[in-house]
């Protein structure tokens, strides 16, 4: 196996297109990939479907790296050096065992697509500067443990895609309505009962837009609008009738619906062997 990897590394070194594809090679430790540090011009590194447990801080030595895919590994922690990578545009660390993102992660200068799907992350595990990532255009956070989305989400002005599928969300902040460029919003499979009226201004009902909101315990008036169609939901939550109902609902302070999904079988829950 190692010799095969070495061959791939050598091929990448000779090519004009410095990409390295090491998908499903049973790699456990990035540092054990022979010759990897010599690929200084590396543009893309794909390490999906391996058994990598940690990412070394030296990953940041790849100054030209634009795309890093670590999907489906055993990573529990990322190095703080990630935020110093000057060209990193696409980072996919989905399907790992992350319990937090590294301190200062929000300083990534040009990050456009961040995929942290299927981990053990929540609002408490985000670094303080996370919402400084205003270059983000797609944020995939499905299959995590968010109960509340921080209102600072409104600072991600370039966000076009936001996925919060299958989390524990009991509410979404009204600041979500400030993301005027949003054209995909996935909030299905949460514990949401109401939506802030401010979301009524989002343009998510055209043929080029995606709005997924199923699998939530919506209050009856909203559920009824979903029955007719998603466009009716947005018209409805803009109405004065709904604003009144929403205000009353919030001030009543009803207890959030209980967790109804058992996540113990998620592979991200696996412990170090």
């Amino acid at each position: 196996m190692t010799s095969k990897i070495k061959k791939l590394v050598d091929e990448a070194k000779d090519s004009d297109n410095p990409e390295l594809d090491l998908v499903d090679k049973g790699i456990v430790n990035i540092l054990e990939i022979p010759g990897l540090p010599t690929l200084t011009n590396l543009n893309k590194l794909v390490l999906a479907h391996n058994k990598i447990a940690s990412v070394p801080p030296s990953i940041a030595n790849f100054l030209n790296l634009e795309t890093l895919t670590l999907f489906n590994n055993h990573i529990e922690e990322l190095p703080t050096t990630l935020s110093s990578m000057p060209k990193l545009r696409i980072l996919n660390v989905g399907m790992n065992r992350l319990n937090s993102l590294p301190r200062g992660f929000g300083a990534c200068p040009v990050l456009e697509v961040l995929d942290i799907t299927y981990n053990n992350l929540s609002e408490n595990s985000l670094p303080a500067n996370f919402f400084c990532l205003d270059t983000l255009r797609a944020l995939y956070m499905g299959d995590n443990d968010f109960e509340h989305l921080p209102p600072e989400i409104g600072r991600l002005k370039n966000l076009q895609i936001l996925v919060l599928r299958d989390n524990e969300l009991v509410d979404v902040p009204k600041e979500l309505g400030e993301l005027t460029r949003l054209r995909e919003l996935h909030i299905q499979g949460n514990r949401l009962t109401v939506l802030p009226p401010e979301l009524g201004g989002l343009d998510l009902v055209g043929s080029k837009q995606v709005f997924k909101a199923g699998g939530n315990p919506w209050v009856t008036p909203i559920a009824e609008q979903f029955q007719i169609g998603a466009s009716h939901v947005f018209d409805y939550i803009k109405s004065d009738t709904y604003k009144f109902l929403y205000g009353r609902h919030i001030s009543a302070g009803a207890a959030p619906p209980p967790k109804n999904t058992d996540k113990s079988k998620k592979i991200s829950r696996s412990q170090k062997k």
């Binding site: 594809d21 998908v23 499903d24 893309k44 794909v46 999906a48 479907h49 795309t67 895919t69 999907f71 489906n72 996919n92 989905g94 995929d115 799907t117 995939y140 499905g142 895609i161 996925v163 599928r165 995909e184 996935h186 995606v210």
Partner: peptide
């Protein structure tokens, strides 16, 4: 969107959060 293997018109793929995923990755 996961393994970055090139796809063409004929490649079959799955949808995952509105991204294309090849059969290999989906099976994993």
């Amino acid at each position: 969107s996961i393994c970055d293997h090139k796809m063409n018109q004929k490649t079959k793929f799955f949808e995952f959060d509105q991204k294309p995923v090849c059969k290999n990755c989906y099976d994993k």
